[in-house]
Amino acid sequence: MAAAAAAGAGPEMVRGQVFDVGPRYTNLSYIGEGAYGMVCSAYDNVNKVRVAIKKISPFEHQTYCQRTLREIKILLRFRHENIIGINDIIRAPTIEQMKDVYIVQDLMETDLYKLLKTQHLSNDHICYFLYQILRGLKYIHSANVLHRDLKPSNLLLNTTCDLKICDFGLARVADPDHDHTGFLTEYVATRWYRAPEIMLNSKGYTKSIDIWSVGCILAEMLSNRPIFPGKHYLDQLNHILGILGSPSQEDLNCIINLKARNYLLSLPHKNKVPWNRLFPNADSKALDLLDKMLTFNPHKRIEVEQALAHPYLEQYYDPSDEPIAEAPFKFDMELDDLPKEKLKELIFEETARFQPGYRS
C-alpha cells in the first residue's frame, strides 16, 4: 500500500510507478496490472468513496492506442447498470505532455475469474450472474457493438453480487458484411471463450460470437473449470467437437473457408456428449439454455433477447427493466489503419471533457 500523499506533496508512487492523480484522489492501494497499465484503488475526496484507477501508458504502440481509444469512446457513450462506466479521466493539459491516461471507475471487490478459483456457486448465484451478463449484453448488442472478449476476468463483482462487464478494448461495431482481413492475426481474445466460426472463417462476425462466450462462462460457473481449455488453435476446435459432436452437413455448409471445411470433413465422426453427463448436478433449465448458447452453427445460436426470456431466468426476466441503447454506435473511421500519432490526438480530444474549465 502506498503511503497517503500529504496535501501538495506531488504524485504518489505505487510499486515504483508514478500515479499522478492528486489532489482529488489519494490513499492509493495496488490492485493489479494488465498488459499496459496498473490498477489501484484510491480515495475520492470529492465523492467520499474509494474508486478504481487504471493507469494506461499506450502511446508507444499502435495496438494499445487503438484499444484505449475504443474503450474510452464506447464506455463514455454507454450507460447501463451492468456495464462499468467511466467516472473521470485524468491526463496532462497538453498533448505533448500526455504520456499516461488515468481512467477512474467504480471500485468492484472482485471478478468472476477470482471468485470461481475459490468458491463453488449455488444455482441461485449462477442464475443471477447469468441474468446480469445477458442484461448488459442486450444493451451492448442493441448499440450494434460486439464485445468480443467476454470471459470471467472481464466480469466485475461486488459483495452485493452486482455484476458489471468491463474491458471493451477489443470491441467492434457489428459488421457481418465487412471482410476484416487479418482478423485472426489481430484477434487476441482469450482462445477458450472463442466461437468456432472465428477459427473457421475470417469473413465478418456477428453478435452470436458473444453468446458463445457467455455459454462458455455459464459452463464454467457450473463446474469451476473452463469447458474448452484448448492449448492452441486446432486443439481448441477438437475440444469443442469432442463435446458438441461432429457438425451436420448443414452446419458445414455455413463454413465459407474450404480449407477449414475440408479439415472438419477429414475428422472421424464424434457423438455429442449429453450435458447432464458433463454437469450431473446442474439445473435442467440451465443445461437447456447452455445447449442453445453453445450451438456450433452461429445462425442457430440463441440471441440475447431470447436467452433473457428463457425459463431458467424467469424469476428475473423483465423486458421493461432491460434497457437498450438510445442509438446504434458508430465509429467515424476504422481505427485499425491509423498511425499511433493520430490515435493519440483522438484520445486527447475524447478525454477533453474531463479537463478543468472544459467548454463543449
Rank of each mutant, 00 (worst) to 15 (best):
A2F: 05
A2Q: 00
A3P: 01
A5Q: 13
P11K: 14
M13I: 15
V21A: 10
Y25F: 15
L28P: 09
L28R: 05
S29G: 03
S29T: 01
S29I: 13
E33A: 03
Y36F: 15
M38K: 15
D44Q: 07
D44P: 03
V46C: 07
K48G: 14
I53S: 08
S57E: 02
P58C: 04
C65T: 06
R67Y: 08
T68V: 04
T68P: 14
R70I: 02
K73D: 12
R77D: 03
R77L: 15
R77H: 03
I90V: 06
A92H: 00
T94Y: 05
E96Q: 01
V104I: 13
Q105T: 08
M108C: 04
K114D: 11
L115I: 01
L115R: 00
L121Q: 15
S122V: 04
D124H: 09
D124Y: 14
I126H: 07
C127N: 06
Y128K: 11
Y131W: 01
I133E: 03
L137D: 10
Y139S: 11
H141N: 15
K151D: 01
S153V: 06
N154P: 01
L156V: 04
D162G: 04
L163S: 09
I165S: 04
C166V: 03
G169P: 02
G169K: 04
L170H: 09
D175C: 06
P176V: 08
D177G: 04
H178I: 12
T181Q: 12
G182V: 15
L184D: 14
Y193K: 11
A195G: 06
Y205Q: 11
E220R: 10
M221R: 10
L222N: 07
P226E: 09
N238P: 10
I240Y: 06
G242N: 02
L244R: 00
C254H: 11
C254P: 07
I256L: 12
N257I: 15
L258E: 09
K259Q: 12
L264A: 03
L265D: 09
S266Q: 01
L267I: 00
N271Y: 14
N271R: 12
V273P: 00
R277E: 09
N281W: 07
K285E: 13
K285L: 13
A286H: 01
L287C: 05
K292I: 07
L294G: 05
T295Y: 04
F296Q: 10
F296M: 07
K300C: 11
E303K: 13
E305C: 02
L313G: 10
Y317D: 05
D318P: 00
D318A: 14
D318Q: 04
E322A: 15
P323N: 02
A327R: 04
K330S: 05
K330R: 10
E334G: 03
E334R: 02
L335E: 11
D337Y: 15
D337L: 06
L338R: 01
L338Y: 07
K340C: 05
K342A: 07
F348W: 08
Q355I: 05
Y358V: 09
R359N: 02
